[in-house]
Nucleic acid binder design. Structure first.
Lengths: 333, 333
DNA sequence: TGATTTTATGAAAGCGTTTACATAATTGTG
DNA sequence: CACAATTATGTAAACGCTTTCATAAAATCA
């Protein structure tokens, strides 16, 4: 590998000057710059970012922890981030936490050892306290899809309560009163908050909430199918079913069809997230939009502004979900 | 930041010894190891991987280039890779090439500048020659989802011709002879090869191929919808439609429904890829499985074996697709 | 033109590790 | 117990940059 030193020799300048032209720092005469450039080209020089990082104490790398890589949710989020970071020539070092506190910590640790300039974390198992602690230790990090009061400034999240509210409110508005709810895991904040929103909507419209109409799933399609079956089996009567995500909604639709109930004529269905396949279902799934790509890009902007001192970027800390009307909801007969 | 030097002082040993315990190299007495360990713990030492990388000329980082991050395809692939790499404590530096030769090259360059130990590339725009060249320069890389003869050893791909064949052969086997084909972009190798497979199947079964029954889409759902509309508009008669991917198949199903044609009673539909939402559609989409996660993990094993000298890992260079039977295909009436 | 400011360059000290190589301590052998 | 073999540790030179500080060259000014 050819080094800056060899280039400097060939160009007849010092290595400091070569460094200056590489980084566009300091001042260097146009003529010298050209000298250096041709020397680099002729020798096939490739900048060694590792050495540069050590010397400058900046890696231009963002550590990214997500629970999983498969599925379309995190890809969309990271895509949003990547787009914003690419222009700034930053890179992403990606790790998965598998919703396991132990693994999440190890990954955060590993990314810190690699001297990432900042971290973007979607972590689910690690405690609030742990994250607060990191921030207090001076670790530059932004927590996405999770809100922690003490470090609210470092969080970018969706108002899940509002989303849950919007979904059920829509069903109520078009006339449903018997609304089944297939919740996500109630151990997760999203799952809990979306259910809370559902309950608030019912309360607002004077409809009594009953556990009998609620089923706790696990965010996977299959649990949507099971949820509908279980609800029917326990004799629950409903004209609509709200689901805590699109996967479960799609699972629910499958079960409803099996039972000979048409969507939306007999039963309305609403999902949550607006993942890309929601529009491929037929009828297209009415759902709540989770602006996940936007969250990803805001996380990037947060980092760009706070860590790299780029000119003020815009970002909000709590985003609003909105209703996406498609074909799976209609007024009850 | 506390350094190895400070630890060594506190533990009363040399920094070489500290390095040894960190890396588990050389020999160090159990007692000394403990001394060092406690010193590290007390000082809150965090290993500086950047410095280590510079000194050892190994970054334990794999550069990964994919066209995009959104959608479920690349997430699944990277997930396969990540799983295999995590155990080996390697990390992934991710970049997107956007199917643009210029960008792809820049990204490859950037990853090389960061001294990635190896690259995993899903690149679409850059020429075969360019990649062959990199390999000849000694760059450790594996090309996924693309086959280049000269560097076949560095490629892991799917037999797309066979996949296209399997799909149409299935339709033929159950009695269809009027089979429309919605191709992916024919500028891309996958698109071309899958169509070739389709044509081979027809030939094998003595059915004549006609351009009139073929529509060139772009792998996006909408082009599936447009494809069906265009075929019908040009008066094509068909009892089945084979699509070059699942998105287009889902789009095709939407168009068919609009036209009042039932799936599969009136028209059978088959997709390609077996992306995760294929099973959420109803009826479930019959398709060709693209073992994308497996490809991701094989790429990881290739790297582990070839670059890090881990004990022999298994991987094949050309994987076989297989038929996934669900509900969108049936014999014509 | 000489003094002064500004611009351009170089020398050299890090940055925090790893890793030959040398040496010291320990263990084993006859 | 002396000597060899083995095991454990230390010394110090890289690794390839960045960056401060000093100095030289060029530009500006009076």
């Amino acid at each position: 590998m050819v080094t800056i030193k060899q280039v400097s020799k060939k160009a007849g300048v010092s290595s400091a000057t070569v460094s200056r032209v590489i980084n566009n720092t300091g001042t260097v005469k146009e003529k010298t710059r050209e000298l250096v450039m041709t020397a680099m080209a002729e020798l096939g020089y490739r900048h060694n970012v590792v050495a540069a990082s050590l010397a400058s104490n900046k890696t231009h790398t963002i550590g990214y922890v997500v629970p999983e890589l498969h599925g379309s949710f995190f890809g969309a989020m990271m895509g949003g981030t990547e787009q914003a970071l690419r222009q700034a020539k930053k890179h992403m070092l990606i790790a998965t936490g598998h919703s396991d506190a132990q693994i999440e910590k190890e990954q955060i640790d590993a990314l810190l050892s690699r001297r990432c300039d900042a971290l973007i974390l979607h972590v689910e198992a690690v405690s609030d306290e742990y994250l607060v602690n990191l921030v207090q230790q001076g670790v530059e990090l932004v927590v996405v899809n999770r809100f922690i009061e003490e470090i609210g400034d470092n969080c970018i999240s969706l108002d899940n309560v509002k989303g849950g509210y919007l979904a059920s409110r829509h069903l109520l508005d078009i006339g449903h009163t018997q609304i089944a709810y297939i919740a996500g895991s109630l151990l997760k904040a999203d799952g809990k908050n979306r259910l809370t929103g559902h309950q608030q909507a019912l309360a607002d419209m004077g409809v009594e909430y009953t556990d009998n109409l609620t089923y706790e799933g696990n965010f996977q399609a299959k649990s949507g199918t099971e949820g509908v079956r279980a609800l029917v089996a326990r004799g629950a009567k409903f004209t609509a079913v709200a689901c805590a995500n699109d996967e479960m909604a799609s699972g629910a639709m499958i079960a409803l069809r099996e039972l000979g109930r048409r969507v939306p004529e007999d039963v309305s269905v609403i999902g949550f997230d607006n993942v890309d396949f929601a529009s491929y279902l037929s009828p297209g799934l009415t759902t709540i939009d989770y602006p996940v790509q936007k969250i990803g890009s805001m996380a990037a902007h947060w980092v760009l502004e706070r860590v790299y001192g780029h000119t003020r970027h815009e970002y909000q800390h709590i985003l609003s979900p909105r209703l996406i009307l498609r074909g799976t909801t209609s007024s009850p007969e």
